[in-house]
Structure formats: C-alpha cells, structure tokens
C-alpha cells in the first residue's frame, strides 16, 4: 500500500500534535503559568517562541494549550458521535413518530447557528471544561445525526436487516450488530471533519473569552491573551492561530485519504 505524500504530511503533523499533547509536562521547558521573563520577549535560545503578554514562556503555553484544545475537541467529538449516531440508528430502525420527533427536533436546533446557540447557553452556565465538552458535543451531535440517519436508512432496507427482524431480534441488537458495522466507514471519515470543527469551535469560544478560562492555557485563549500585541507588530498571537490551522489541515488531509481509501475498497465512487 502506498500512502500519498499529502496524507503522510497530514499523518506526521497530526501525530506530532497528539504526542505533544500527551507528553506535555515532559516536553514543556517551563511550567504552564510560570512567569519566567519580560513581557513579549522576542524569540531567543532561552525562549524559543519568545514570551507572552505577562512574561510566560510561549512555547510551554503552546504545548499545554495544545493539550487542552485537543483533549476538549476529542471528548466533544466522541460525545457527539455516540449521541448522534445512537439516536440516528434508533430513529432509522424504529421509524414512525420516534423518527419524526427526533428529526424535527434536530432541524430545530440546526435552525439556530451553533456558535450563537452555544453563546446563549454559556451565558447562564458556569464555563468549565466539562460544560464546554457537553455543550459542543450535543450541539454537534445534530450534524452526526443527519449523516448517520441518512446512512442507516439505506441499510435498514437491506435483506439482512429484514432477516434479523424476522428472526425476532431486539432493536438494540439490530442497531449494534447489523447497522453499526455497516455504517462505520462513512462515519469514521466524517469523524475527522467533526474533530476539526470542534478544534475551531473551542478555539473560537476561548478567543471570545467564553471558553477555557485563564490561567488554563488553550490555543484560542493564547490568541486572545496576545492579541493586543498585534497592533505593536508583535506576532505572538499568530503562533497559536497557525497551530490551530496546521492541526486542522493535517487532520483534513488524513480524513481525505481515509475517505478515498474506504470508498475505493468498495469499488469507488467514480
């Protein structure tokens, strides 16, 4: 099997960022909230990326920040996939009013832009990492639901599902043993895109000051902390923004490759 260059680059950076997230305390040269130098020192051998708006080492904050961002995005993606696909399969298998009620409810939630809805909800909730994961995960579950339902509806008319029904299998058995294995590959390809969306979502919320709260570092928050520097020509805020972009592009490249591979295994889409 030959892996295309674009996918290799994507895999490399994705792996790099995830490893950095996992081993953050071992790699980071300084502590996450440790003030070690002057305000906005330029890059030097002591501080590879310089220092931030209150004199913390930017590289260390970037590494810890990546950890927070990736953790939140991963958990929210997992939550949105589990909620979205289980409800979608349930709707597709049961049909009737359950399907109607769930689908119309999803339509309703999607009629409000998710960023606006998240802001509305966060105005009355305490902003903690758990709340962020739950709000983002549940809002995004609507998109997973739409895809998973479309896939599952095609599968439920297959003969093997009919056979399972006639054997008298329970709904849960049909969902997990017949539908899930067959719906997995389109869902996994979608997972990469949802993960990117979550990274952008949590970064945007933190950038607006309504996501991860300081002194906890995360990439969107680091942009916010250093944004005043831009006007004085200090590019510290661009570093985390570039990290977000490269992570998102890398995951996208990998997801594209997986999508192409899984579809070509099935004979391709032309």
């Amino acid at each position: 099997m030959r892996i295309p260059l674009a996918a290799l680059i994507g895999l490399f950076f994705t792996a790099l960022y995830f490893l950095m997230a996992i081993f953050a305390p071992l790699i980071a040269p300084y502590g996450m909230a440790e003030i070690v130098g002057d305000v906005w020192e330029p890059s030097s051998s002591r501080f590879l990326l310089g220092t931030d708006s209150i004199g913390r080492d930017l590289l260390s904050r970037m590494i810890y920040g990546g950890r927070t961002t990736i953790w939140i995005a991963t958990m929210a993606t997992a939550l949105s996939f589990i909620t979205g696909s289980v409800l979608a399969f349930l709707a597709a298998v049961t049909g009737g009013w359950v399907d109607q009620a769930l689908s119309r409810f999803v339509d309703l939630i999607m009629s409000i832009p998710s960023l606006i809805f998240a802001l509305v909800v966060l105005s009355v909730m305490p902003v903690t990492v758990t709340v962020l994961i739950v709000v983002m995960g549940l809002l995004d579950a609507t998109r997973v639901y739409r895809l998973a339902r479309a896939v599952a509806v095609d599968i439920t008319v297959m003969d093997y599902v009919e056979a399972a029904r006639l054997r008298g299998e329970k709904t849960m058995w049909i969902i997990f043993r017949e539908i899930l294995p067959n719906a997995l590959s389109p869902l996994i390809a979608e997972m990469g895109l949802r993960f990117i969306f979550m990274v952008l979502f949590v970064s945007t919320l933190s950038f607006l000051g309504l996501g991860v709260q300081p002194p906890q570092a995360d990439w969107g928050g680091i942009v916010k902390e250093n944004k005043e520097g831009i006007v004085y020509g200090i590019p510290a805020a661009l570093v985390p923004a570039f990290a977000i972009a490269t992570l998102a592009i890398s995951v996208n490249l990998v997801a594209d490759w997986i999508l192409n591979r899984t579809t070509s295994l099935k004979g391709g889409r032309g």
């Binding site: 990117i196 969107g220 592009i249």
Partner: peptide, 18 residues
C-alpha cells in the same frame, strides 16, 4: 478551499491586520 475550511476566522483576521 481545503485550507480555508481549516483556518480559524481570527487567524485570517490577525494575519491581514498584521
């Protein structure tokens, strides 16, 4: 297109501003 769906809006904003 691939790049632009992956880039946060504030990055484009600050890069242009910078």
């Amino acid at each position: 297109t691939l790049a632009s769906i992956s880039i946060p809006e504030f990055l484009i904003g600050y890069v242009l501003m910078y």
